[in-house]
Design a binder for these strands. Structure first.
Lengths: 351, 351
DNA sequence: CATGCTTGCTGGACCGTTCCAGCACAGGAG
DNA sequence: CTCCTGTGCTGGAACGGTCCAGCAAGCATG
């Protein structure tokens, strides 16, 4: 029966956009007022069961489909949250998104995703698009907007940032892992394997990179290795990792281990090691950060600091939806503990 | 000035959804009718330049933002295409999406992305959501809807499938690579390295897997290796690749090379090789399929059949937008040639 | 029997746009 | 001067829903 409706439209589709049945058409067919159809469709209580059934049947027969635009306009609500993604290529994104999506669905919110293009302008345009859609809240998985610009957006609807907690915009809610602690975990692990000359391949100016860098420094000093601290410039990309590691390996006192700002960059770092005729982990141990699936892939087996990605996604969505539903939510910034995932790119240092 | 508007709303945001300025507010401030504001905002021709400027200024001052819902309702258009993604984890997805997004943007269409959940029901719900938003067209990157169900959707708006071209639904436009040819490329390459016992780790019942399987068989026969044909069951996941390869390696006549249905599964296959104390490529050569970035990562260096992912994304978007803009588009099903990307997981067979 | 409450339904205003018909005015052609 | 054309603008209907006030009928209560 539904198929029949689709068939009818199938023909019309050839010549242009189909004139879809409206709530009024359904009302006529069911012999009731359009108001009642509206009520029945949103599962309102005061509708007689058999009337409701008749309306639902009529809707089904006509192939009625709610018009989200009209709905939003009338209801002043969309029950939709916008998800902004900075980089689809980062394997971290997929894990987080799956969890966000699942939690939102559970709470009866829908999600739409947009992805920020190359530059800040494109990112801004995508965010603007979300706002035009009148999403009720925004979840951002990474962002590169200058401080302050994001504030202008979150003035319009609540937002939660996943991953980086911008210290500069304290009003922004965030769910992140404790990067300082995570970096410490990495250093602790390497030290426990006897490493002393541990270099840090950095990620640049972002808040995340800053914290990981700081955690590295703090941990090194804690182990009495303050003099061995060596931070080289890199980035969150494979290429950045390659260049950073190259620089570190060419240091006069060559490090025996590399702590790299994220998993992707760690891939590049391993390539750099290899290109110098050295091997991982025999000559050089490598630790990444993020705990993405990529790192877990067998031929790679990267030791890394795992973020609770799924949990982060879930919490972010739960917090946002909760806030929208008027629940009182606790603190705006949640920070989850990371954990070390030991695999095959780290080994005891050779004397 | 824009910031000022944001500030004002910033306060109101605490107590609930902000009452955003409407086109009417802008009209009042600029001292014109709302119709003219509407005209000015959509860059209509018959608006005096200085009036337009005044209107734009007023809009800016008030922090006006178009309401997409109202727009859609009035204009009977959304200029939005919906992108359905089956699996965000497949690294192929990101490449394709980037290209789709870029092309759509170039043609002044916006995109929204939804991701299909665990099962066919969730997938259907997401597609339905897109339709409720009244997207003008749909691009699907993979899908698992039973044949016929997808027909019901595409009856309502034009759609292009990327990747798999469902033979069973010939009315669906698609952009794909030639899987039969690609599989042939892989076999040719292995044969040129002296391999004869080449096994195929399969991907299951999907159309894509079928074509790759068939391409493998055809090529083997072409090389006079019909007797060496060995297809083992696997899937498009790492795990499926592992199990498939395990089975292949336990064959009485152990193969010297593995052609695996996609890059992800090839990762699993390599793990299986390793677990048997064998090495890639010295003992076993491995070829993947897709040409994802994953395969290119240095520590992996997988030899693979590369799909022109970016080109596929671009063409799909171009075709869809073109159709929506009334251009006459050629054939509904485009098939691009893949190419072999030779890296370090294949080697000359040892005698 | 009047009253009030509950249940089930209706009519119409409203949301923020677009778009169409139409109007006033200016300038050029006849 | 009149007519015509084009320019710049306005008012209001329409889009497809939601939601509120209100109404009729049935029932219980006093």
């Amino acid at each position: 029966m539904a198929a029949e409706g689709a068939e009818e439209n199938g023909r019309a589709a050839e010549v242009g956009p189909v004139a879809r049945p409206t709530i009024r058409d359904v009302a006529t067919r069911a012999g009731v007022s359009k108001s009642l159809v509206s009520l029945a469709l949103q599962n309102a209580p005061r509708v007689a069961p058999q009337t409701r059934a008749a309306i639902l049947a009529a809707a089904e027969e006509l192939g009625y489909r709610r018009n989200a635009a009209a709905h939003a306009l009338g209801a002043h609500r969309t029950r939709t949250i916008g998800v902004f993604v900075l980089d689809l290529h980062n394997p971290l994104t997929a894990d987080v998104l799956d969890a966000v999506q699942a939690e939102a669905r559970r709470r009866d919110y829908r999600t739409i995703i947009v992805v920020g293009g190359e530059d800040a302008a494109a990112e801004r345009a995508e965010l603007e698009k979300l706002l035009e859609f009148r999403v009720e809240g925004i979840i951002a998985v990474g962002h590169r907007l200058p401080d302050g610009a994001d504030a202008a957006f979150t003035a319009d609807c609540p937002a939660v940032i996943i991953g980086s907690d911008h210290r500069s915009t304290p009003h922004l809610a965030s769910v992140s892992n404790d990067d300082v602690m995570g970096a410490g975990l990495a250093v602790d692990h390497l030290v426990s394997l006897g490493h002393e000359r541990i270099a840090c391949v950095d990620g640049g100016p972002s808040a995340v990179a800053r914290d990981r860098r700081r955690g590295y420094r703090t941990a090194m000093r804690r182990h009495g290795l303050g003099d061995a601290i060596a931070v080289v410039k890199g980035s969150f990309t494979e290429d950045g990792g390659y260049r950073g590691a190259s620089q570190a390996l060419d240091l006069p006192e060559r490090p025996t281990a590399l702590f790299v700002v994220n998993d992707l960059a760690a891939m590049g770092a391993m390539a750099a090691v290899e290109d110098r005729g050295l091997s991982v982990p025999d000559d050089i141990s490598v630790v990444g950060y993020d705990g993405t699936r990529l790192a877990g892939i067998r031929p790679i087996g990267l030791t890394t600091v795992g973020q609770p990605l799924q949990q982060m996604g879930t919490q972010a969505a739960a917090r946002l939806c909760g806030q929208l539903d008027g629940e009182v939510c606790g603190q705006a910034r949640t920070r989850l503990p990371p954990s070390l995932i030991e695999r095959r790119t780290t080994a005891r240092v050779l004397r």
